[in-house]
Design a protein around this nucleic acid. Structure first.
Length: 478
RNA sequence: GGCCCCGUCGUCUAGUCUGGCCUAGGACACCAGGUUUUCAUCCUGGCAACAGGGGUUCAAAUCCCCUCGGGGUCACCA
């Protein structure tokens, strides 16, 4: 674990779906680690499952990573000296290793049908034994093997797991993890269709790409012994590992679609600020110190250390995520916020000038949790007539409201400049004159103007609505 | 079930390696006040945890053992 190799880490998604929250965090940790140490962050596509791969998935993964701001130094679109970066294009590399293994005897051909193996394992389970391939083909005579090969009998290639060795995993998060080789079965290295499997490609690639640290999810810890044994058979040095804890759903189990959105993209599409998402992901299993909860990508990089990653799983807590989103928005300048809000605004904003838009951004800022919220929140500014919600309707139907509204309308009609300066004082005065509490006036006015009982200060609403529209709404609402 | 990993407030976590500064800190959520023309923001305060049991030690959240609990994994998926 004493490292002097240059830091080279990779994130290796398989293009069989969108980028999962857990995967995004793994990518973030890898990225932060590389950036912290001036190392190289590699993106490698693990597309050995030809059945389930799709270009669409690949595209969405790349775009989700860009959205988070995780740029890679080698990989799709940028190249690099250790490519190709898609496993499907690396067959020559795998073939060479397979030949070596076959020659040296740590790989062997297995002609057992899937049916036989399944039945075998089923039987073992019934006997309460651990299901495991029985190595029926391990000692197959060369002659027989060649003969069956010649007639084209389908087969896989398995790894001959050594009998009594110990696989030691040096893990920066968990310390040394030890597994006896008897616990590992003779796993399939090459499928019957000729395509090698994950555990094999992963090792060949990590070695060839000179990966120094394998930072990945804890679900991979269980098959790391297979990889460690393979490195040994190959005579290659193993990388350091860091198995990061799982992200859990509300049920305490590995986060899955049951619990909510698990694709990073879904969050982007709902208007979550990317920097809040990154901050939140960084808070799951990692911490800068005993009190920092809000931090930027740069701050995370500056403080990143594998030793500061937890061992235990973390529940995906949307309350905190939402708070972080609101906090991110609140700390933005009007100009920045407006730019981020633009995609969510009603197309009617085209008619509006810059000052108007800035005011809109400013007065909704502290009320927003997501950029996407602005759409619904500001809808009343763009529609022809307001549809009062339940509470607003109630406020509008109270006794004397009609008089109040027309009174305020008349009052405002008489104002020269717009928005009315000292609007609040004006209303206060008018309310006093008519022996009404300020609230008695403000509430129905707000209901008439916006259709709800909440929102920005009425002075801002008046400004955004304009004089004609404001007066029309007051007169129309009775 | 086998193997492996993990176990501090409801949640995210600091503290654990290198025992004492921990009467266990921060944040979210929640509750109570305050500011405020509404909502929201903001401010103040409160609630709330070392899974349990044994050791070791002058001293244990921190070291050791056991128990219990949770999770991951047991594919020709990654």
């Amino acid at each position: 674990m004493t490292e002097n190799r240059p830091v080279r880490v990779r994130f290796a998604p398989s293009p069989t779906g969108k980028l999962h929250i857990g995967g995004a965090r793994t990518a973030l940790f890898n990225w932060a680690f590389a950036r912290r140490h001036g190392g190289v962050f590699i993106l490698r596509i693990e597309d050995t499952d030809t059945e389930r791969n799709s270009q669409e998935s690949l595209d969405s993964i790349l775009s989700a990573m860009r959205w988070l701001g995780l740029d890679w130094d080698e990989g799709p679109g940028v190249g690099g000296d250790f490519g190709p970066y898609a496993q499907s294009e690396r067959m020559p590399l795998y073939d060479a290793a397979i030949q070596k293994g076959l020659t040296e005897g740590w790989l062997y051909r297995c002609f057992c049908t899937p049916e036989r193996v399944n039945a075998l394992k089923e039987e073992q389970r019934n006997r309460k034994e651990n299901p495991r391939y029985d190595r029926a083909c391990l000692g197959l005579p060369d002659a027989e093997c060649a003969k069956r090969l010649e007639v084209g009998e389908p087969h896989v290639i398995r790894f001959a797991v050594p009998d009594s060795e110990t696989a030691e995993i040096q893990d920066h998060i968990r310390g040394q993890v030890t597994v006896q080789s008897v616990e590992v079965e003779d796993w399939v290295v090459v499928r019957s269709n000729g395509m090698p499997t994950y555990n094999f490609c992963c090792v060949i690639d990590d070695a060839q790409m000179q990966i120094s640290h394998v930072v990945r999810g804890e679900e991979h810890l269980a098959n790391t012994p297979k990889q460690v044994l393979l490195y040994r058979a190959l005579g290659l040095p193993q990388p350091d590992y860091a198995h990061v804890p799982l992200i859990l759903g509300q049920d305490g189990k590995k986060l899955s679609k049951r619990t909510g959105d698990t694709a990073l993209q879904d969050y982007r599409d709902k208007g979550y600020p990317a920097e809040a998402m990154l901050n939140f992901l960084g808070l799951l299993g990692f911490s800068i110190d005993d009190e920092t909860t809000v931090f930027s990508a740069d701050e995370m990089v500056a403080a990143f250390d594998l030793k500061r990653i937890n061992k235990s799983g973390a529940i995906f807590d949307t309350d905190k995520l939402h708070w972080l989103c609101g906090d991110t928005i609140r700390r933005m300048t009007d100009t920045d916020l407006l730019e981020r809000l633009r995609p969510w605004l009603n197309t009617a904003v085209c008619d509006k000038d810059g000052g108007w838009l800035l005011q809109l951004a400013a007065c909704f800022r502290e009320r927003l949790t997501l950029f996407g919220d602005v759409s619904e929140m500001s809808a009343h500014l763009f529609c022809e007539c307001v549809e009062p919600d339940e509470k607003a309707a109630k406020a509008l139907s109270a006794d004397g409201v009609a008089d109040t509204l027309s009174g305020v309308a008349d009052l405002l009609a008489g104002v020269e400049s717009w928005p009315p300066p000292e609007f609040f004082a004006l209303v206060k005065g008018w309310a006093a004159e008519h022996e009404l509490g300020v609230g008695k006036v403000m509430k129905p006015v707000r209901a008439a103007l916006t259709g709800s009982l909440g929102g920005p200060e009425l002075g801002d609403v008046l400004a955004l609505l304009g004089k004609d529209c404001s007066l029309a709404r007051l007169r129309q609402a009775r």
